[in-house]
Design a protein around this nucleic acid. Structure first.
Length: 262
DNA sequence: ATGGTTGGTAGCCAA
C-alpha cells in the first residue's frame, strides 16, 4: 500500500493539481499540509468523489493539515499536537487505518518554520519538536506500524541541500533544529526516503523566488519516518518531482512510501 | 549580491 504526503500550499489554489496527482498516483493514504482553510471550507466532496475518506484539522488563512484515506479512518486519534493547551496552530492530525489484517497509524504534521532564528518563532519550533518527541515516544510503545509524515521544515544534513552554505542562518538548518530531528529519529525511526536513496540531489522543496527550481536550488525537508514495525514493511520510497513543473505548482513536491501488505 | 515569488487576505503576514 502507498502512503504519500504533500505540502500543497493552499488547497483552494491547488485543488486541480491535488486531484490530478491523486488520480495519477492513487495513494491509499494521502496527507496534506498547509491547506490554509477551515474545516468547513475544505473541499471534502471533491476528494470523496475519488474514493477518499477525509479527516481535516484546518485553520483560517494559515497552516492546516488533512488525511485522506481509501480505507476507513478507524480512528482520528488527535487533532492538534498534544502538550500545550495554549498552542492554537493546526499543525498535526493523527489517524488509524486498517491494513493487512492489522492497522497502520499515520501522524500528519506541519512543523513550524521557525524563521527568523533568535525570535519566539524559533523557540516555538524547538518546543513543538520537543512535544512531537514526547508524542512519538508514547506511540512507539504501541509497537504498531507508525508513519510520521509531512513538512518537517528540517534539512537533516548538508547532503539534503544543493547549497548548504545558503542555509546556515536559516531555522531549517540550525544545529539545534538538526539535533532535535536526530533525537526524534534516534528513538528508533527510519527516514524512508534516505534509506531508499542514499545519493545526493534528492529534494522536496524549491523556493518560488530567485529561480530556485530552474537552478535546482532545492532542499529535502518533507519526510516519512517509520517505526520499526513500519520499516519492516518498507518496499520503496520516492519523490513525485514532476508536480513541480506543473502550472501553478506548490513549492513542495509529494513524498511517498510503498509498504508490503494489502 | 540581502534580491526575488506565491497564497490568503483585505493590511500585510507567512513562507
Amino acid at each position: 500500500m502507498r502512503i504519500a504526503t504533500w505540502n500543497i500550499n493552499g488547497v483552494k489554489a491547488r485543488l486541480e493539481g491535488a486531484l490530478a496527482w491523486l488520480k495519477e498516483t492513487s495513494p491509499d493514504v494521502a496527507c496534506f499540509q498547509e491547506i490554509k482553510c477551515t474545516d468547513e471550507a475544505f473541499p471534502d466532496e471533491a476528494f470523496e468523489e475519488l474514493g477518499y475518506n477525509v479527516a481535516v484539522h484546518g485553520q483560517k488563512g494559515f497552516n492546516g493539515v488533512a488525511i485522506l484515506s481509501k480505507r476507513p479512518l478507524d480512528e482520528v486519534a488527535v487533532r492538534g499536537l498534544p502538550g500545550d493547551e495554549a498552542d492554537t496552530h493546526s499543525r498535526y492530525i493523527e489517524a488509524v487505518v486498517p491494513c493487512a489484517g492489522g492497522v497502520i497509524r499515520v501522524g500528519c504534521l506541519y512543523l513550524p518554520n521557525g524563521n527568523p532564528i533568535g525570535t519566539d518563532k524559533f523557540a516555538y519550533k524547538l518546543s513543538w519538536m520537543r512535544r512531537l518527541h514526547d508524542r512519538v515516544e508514547g506511540l512507539l510503545a504501541l509497537e504498531e506500524p507508525l508513519l510520521l509524515v509531512g513538512d518537517f521544515n528540517v534539512i537533516p544534513e548538508a547532503l539534503d541541500a544543493r547549497n548548504p552554505q545558503a542555509w546556515t542562518e536559516d531555522a531549517l538548518f540550525q544545529p539545534e533544529t538538526r539535533a532535535a530531528f536526530r533525537a526524534l529519529v534516534n528513538l528508533g525511526l527510519t527516514d524512508a526516503v534516505r534509506a531508499c536513496h542514499p545519493e545526493a540531489g534528492i529534494y522536496t522543496f524549491w523556493d518560488y523566488q530567485a529561480g530556485a527550481w530552474q537552478k535546482d536550488h532545492g532542499i529535502r525537508i518533507d519526510h516519512v519516518l517509520l517505526s520499526p514495525q513500519g520499516a519492516d514493511r518498507l518496499e520503496g520510497a520516492g519523490i513525485d518531482k514532476f508536480t513541480r513543473s506543473w502550472e501553478k505548482p506548490s513549492d513542495h513536491v509529494p513524498v511517498w512510501v510503498e509498504l508490503t501488505g494489502a
